[in-house]
Amino acid sequence: IAVIRKVRVAVFGTGDELRPHFERIESHQLYNSNAPMFLARAKELGCDVHYSGGSGDTIDSLKSCSREALDADLIITSGGVSVGDKDFTKEAFAQLDMETFFSGIAIKPGKPTTIGAVGKTVIVNLPGNPLAAMVNYELFVKFIIRKLAGSSAPYHGFVETRIQASHTIRPGRFTTLLGSYNGSGFLPLAQQSPGMVSPLPQADGLIITMPEVSLLQEGTIVKMLPIKWGVFSCEKKDIFTAPS
C-alpha cells in the first residue's frame, strides 16, 4: 500500500501587539485570532501542525522564528506584508534567500499576499486582517496543502448556483465574497470587511467576481467555492464569476 506522510505546517504571527486569546490585553494590544484559525484549518485538512509562537516587529526576530520553522513543508505567517513602518516580513524572508513566486495580487481583500519558498519549504505570507487572511488561506493555502500531500485532485472545484439577493461591488480588482448556501442559492453576507472575524463561521462558501463586475443581480449564476465541504478537481478550472 502506497502511503505519504502528513504535510508539516508551521504557523507564527508577527507583531509586538499580538497576544494569545487566554491573556488579558491592554488598549494597545490585539488578540492573535489568525494563528488559531490557521492551525485549526490545517488540522482539518489533515496536516501535522506546529505553532512557532509570535515574532516581534524586527527583522532579526522574524528571521529567528522563520529559521526555527524551516523543517516544515509549509510556513504560514500573517501580518507585516504591507507597506507600514514595521512591515518587515518580506524583507526578513528575502534575507533568508526566499525565492518569491509572487508578491501582491489583484484581489480584495488580501492584496499584500506573498508566496515563495526557502529551499524546499513553501512560504505563505498572508495579511494581518483576519477575514482577508482566511479568504486567501482558502484560495491559496488549501491548494498548496493538497498539492504537497500528493493529491490527484488539488485544484478548486465549484458549485454552480444562483445569487439570492442583488449585491453591489466596487469594480477594478477580483473580489471575493463570503456567503451562506442553503442548497438552492448563495446569499452574500451583509457585513464582511477585511478586519472582521465574525463573518467567518457564518460562511459556507465564497465566490470570486471578475474585475469588471459592479453588480450581481438577484438570480445571477455564480460559481461558489465551498468552505465547509470539499469540491476539488484534477485540473484547473475557471472559478471566476463573470458579468451577467
Score class of each variant (00 low, 15 high):
T161P: 10
T89M: 01
L74C: 05
E91C: 03
R173I: 01
L139G: 08
S33H: 08
P130W: 11
A40M: 06
D71G: 03
F22L: 00
P243W: 13
G15Y: 00
D97H: 14
T113C: 08
V135F: 07
Q217R: 14
H167M: 10
I207K: 03
Q192H: 09
L70K: 11
P154E: 13
A69C: 10
A92Q: 01
G53R: 05
E23N: 02
H28I: 01
I144R: 10
N182E: 08
L200F: 06
R5Y: 04
H156D: 12
G46T: 01
S78V: 00
V122T: 15
K223H: 03
D60F: 09
R8F: 05
T114Q: 11
I59V: 15
G179R: 05
S66Y: 00
A69S: 15
R146V: 09
A117S: 15
Q164V: 04
I221Y: 05
E91Y: 08
T113S: 10
L30Y: 06
R41T: 07
D204C: 05
L131Y: 05
A190Q: 13
L225P: 01
L189D: 09
L216K: 04
A133Q: 07
K86S: 11
E235C: 10
E138N: 13
D60Y: 07
K237N: 14
W229S: 14
T77I: 09
E212I: 03
G219V: 02
F101P: 00
R146T: 07
G116R: 13
S27I: 00
G185I: 02
A72R: 06
P127D: 08
V122H: 13
R41D: 06
R170N: 13
R146I: 10
I144F: 10
D85A: 12
V122M: 12
G54Y: 06
L215K: 12
S233F: 12
D85T: 05
A165T: 14
P226A: 09
P243Q: 11
F12T: 00
S184M: 08
G185M: 03
K223G: 01
V81D: 00
G13P: 04
I208V: 15
V197S: 08
S27F: 01
F143N: 13
S27G: 01
M224Y: 10
P199K: 08
P188A: 09
A35C: 09
K43Y: 02
G150E: 03
A40G: 06
A133L: 10
V141M: 14
L206P: 01
K142D: 14
D16V: 00
T89H: 01
E235G: 07
F240T: 09
E99W: 12
R41W: 08
Q192M: 12
I75E: 02
G185S: 04
I105G: 00
Q29L: 01
F158S: 08
T175V: 14
L62Q: 01
M134F: 07
E91L: 13
L215M: 11
G119T: 04
H28F: 04
I123M: 15
L216M: 03
E91N: 09
P171S: 12
L187R: 12
H21V: 05
P201I: 04
K43F: 02
E218G: 13
A72I: 03
V122Q: 12
G183V: 07
P130R: 11
F186P: 03
A117C: 14
G116Q: 13
V135R: 07
K120V: 02
P171R: 06
G150N: 04
P201M: 03
P201H: 05
P36K: 04
N125W: 06
T89A: 07
